[in-house]
Amino acid sequence: MTNIIETWNLTKHYQQGKLRVDALCGVNIKLPSQAFTALLGPSGSGKSTLLNICGLIDNPSQGTIHFCGENITHASEERLTTIRRNKLGFIFQGFNLVPVMSVYDNIEYPLILLGVNKKLRRERVKTMLETVGLSTFEKHLPDQVSGGQKQRVAIARALITQPKLVIADEPTANLDTQTATDIINLMHKMHNDFNTAFIIATHDDRMSANCNTAYQLHDGVLQ
């Protein structure tokens, strides 16, 4: 079975003035298509950098990365955008919903990018709203719903296109304990329902406990 993500000797370094910061040092990972993977490590360990590279929004300094079997190490920005549009979903710590769009419109947006017709979009968004328990909030603006509900919208938006992989960066960090538990359960359910791989950067032990794989990073090195 093809891995969603496969990396070899992945390195990423930044230049901060005259100082060179090695964010990732020779990282090799293989992320199977059924993965529900946690990325663990203290702040500054390189979790976000690895997540960004896996999410195709950042490029490695060295090494090779394959996405669904395709070597995308030197792929053009346009190609990477196309892959993100078709095969990736993102869940952010700060939700990152578009404030002028309603809950419905936020979830619908990725389908518009894919050119799905209006009728089919409506069906899929309605179903998704039911799945995440937000049917009665479809016309609300993000400002008019709670933090937990916002993250549900973000999850729905990430999964509406049925992507191969969802990248989640600290999805429970801004939520209270009960809401965080609900979100973890929802993500786990969605992983099972949609057969979508998840890679989740987290500090939350309950989240990592629900994952079937966990990578531990320390100073850019995979432990």
Binding site: T81, R85, P110
Partner: peptide, 16 residues
């Protein structure tokens, strides 16, 4: 800017 980053991450082309 942050919103632009989000939309780009979701697969919106820069010309869009």
């Amino acid at each position: 800017i942050r919103e632009i980053g989000t939309l780009r991450a979701m697969g919106t082309y820069s010309n869009e």
